[in-house]
Structure formats: C-alpha cells, structure tokens
C-alpha cells in the first residue's frame, strides 16, 4: 500500500527496543550517539524522536541506567548503559526475534532480501 519508507518505519516500531538494547550492549552511548549508530548500522529510516522516546521509556522501566559525562563542546552528556534487567531483556528479545525471522524466512520462501 504505502511506499517502502512507510513500511520500514512500521516494521521498526516493533524492533526498535531490541535495536537500541543491542547498540547499548556493545558500548554505552548518549542519546544522539545511539541514533547515529543505529543509522550507521543500516536503520536509516529511524526517527530521532522515536529513539529518544524509546531510551527514556527503557530507562523509566528500569532496563537502562544512566550517568552524566562532562563534554568539551557543551553541556554534560547523559550516557545510557544496560543493567542486569536490560541484559535479561535483550536476551529474551533476541531469542524471540530469531524465532520470528526464521519463521518469516520460511514464509517468504527465498523471496525476501533479494531486491
């Protein structure tokens, strides 16, 4: 129905938590750095507000901890990092994700990811 951009952003909604957790599992980051790394990782359609809102929600729900780091260029940066709850959530989510992708690969029957 819609163009590919709309489809991608719809799909992203479901997996943004997982993507953010995965990026932070690699190393601690501040908000805009997470956005940049997700885009560099291939999620070019990801919205700044969506990432920022997701970070705040994961932080509120206790999956992320944060700390302030002084920055040369301006005000301090708030760095986010995974805590035990966040790591457990990432484990559960990635297991679920793998199940879904395997199922979809079968369903798409080799049609996906080609063009």
């Amino acid at each position: 129905m819609g163009d590919s951009g709309v489809d991608t952003s719809q799909l992203l909604k479901g997996v943004l938590d997982l993507a953010v957790l995965a990026v932070l599992a690699e190393r601690d980051s501040y908000g805009y750095d997470v956005v940049r790394r997700l885009r560099e990782g291939g999620l070019s359609a990801v919205g700044d507000a969506s990432v920022y809102g997701t970070l705040r929600r994961l932080h509120q729900s206790g999956a992320l901890s944060s700390y302030a780091v002084a920055s040369d260029e301006g005000p301090h940066r708030k760095y986010y990092c995974l805590n035990d709850r966040g790591r457990a959530l990432l484990d559960r989510s990635s297991t679920a994700w793998c199940g879904v992708t395997r199922a979809l690969e079968t369903l798409l029957n080799g049609r996906g990811c080609g063009g």
Binding site: K13, L16, D17, G47, D48, A49, S50, V51, Y52, G53, T54, R56, R57, L58, Q60, S61
Partner: peptide, 22 residues
Amino acid sequence: ERLGPPESYAAELLAAYASGGA
C-alpha cells in the same frame, strides 16, 4: 528542517515513550 515540526516530533516522542511501556 531536520526533525520536522516540533508538534510531530512531540507526537513521535510520545508514541515511542508510551508504546508497550508504562
């Protein structure tokens, strides 16, 4: 220009914050 109008930014922020969470 980069982020769109503040109202849309606010709506997207809220949607991401409210989805599935508290």
